[in-house]
Amino acid sequence: MSLKTTYFKYRLVGLLLVLHSGWLFAQSHSSASSQAPSFEEEMAFMQHLFRQNQYHNVLLLGQQLKTKFTQTNQQSRLALEMGFAHHYLKKLDSATHYFNQVAPDFAQYDQARFYQSLDLAKLTQYQAATQALIKLPLTQLSPLKTELYHFQLAGLALLNKKYETFTNKAQSFNYQYPQFASQQKKLLVLHEKLKKIPRKSAFVAGLFSAIIPGTGKMYAGKPKQGLNLMLQNLFLGAQAVEALLIDGVRSPRFIIFGGLFSIFYIGNIWGSALSVKLQQRETYETIHQEILFNLDVPLRLVFR
């Protein structure tokens, strides 16, 4: 009896296995031949494209999927990925456009806002960058992201030359997250650097150059150029004086050398005044690039 039952059981299990395998085989064939890739499969393929740095293909795929997958969450995910593709292609305008399309109820909404803010900052739209961050629901953020939020806002204040706001924000830094503790300290250093940039006057530079040619450039922070201009003016001036002393004021030699000297002299005054502005802009630009770099690194460490 028991032997018979066992034999019957084995046969039943065997039959079930055969049926199961047949069903699996049929299912695999039917799925292979008829089913289009699911949204998750498409996303896995998109991640593969990111790993291969094929950002143009991410955009091409994204455009195709946008019409196929129309649920809000799916649209948000696509907008996020397309935002990143544009971000890596350094098409920042388009990146901010796509990051902005991510819906507030989407799981990675905070990521989209942080990156939108960063890209707007890179486009020197500091006000819009701050607005993009302020949209975030602070109460729903984890402690790490809350600290990151304040860090980014502090960086934006620094870029916008709102030093008081920066100081207030920086006072609340707790430096406990290794992802961006060093960047928090770096922002303080950059703040000191920005404060130390001397406020030079274009008028004073022009005045210096009018009194002694070349000194305006030296005042603007370009001593070599200043010395060069000083010698040029000296050479032309000396020849004009020589012509004046030997041939008089109406002589062609004096008119030529005097004219040349005047052009160089006036051009030097104008150039010195302009170089003060340019030099200041260059200094700010260098520090701003450093700030943006320090804002970018933590986002990569926290999110990607």
């Binding site: 050479f235 032309l236 000396a238 020849q239 004086v241 020589e242 012509a243 030997i246 030699r253 050398f257």
Partner: peptide
């Protein structure tokens, strides 16, 4: 012709 400054700076330079 005695224009030594011009001779030095423009001519030679």
């Amino acid at each position: 012709n005695g224009y030594y400054v011009s001779a030095f700076f423009t001519g030679l330079g």
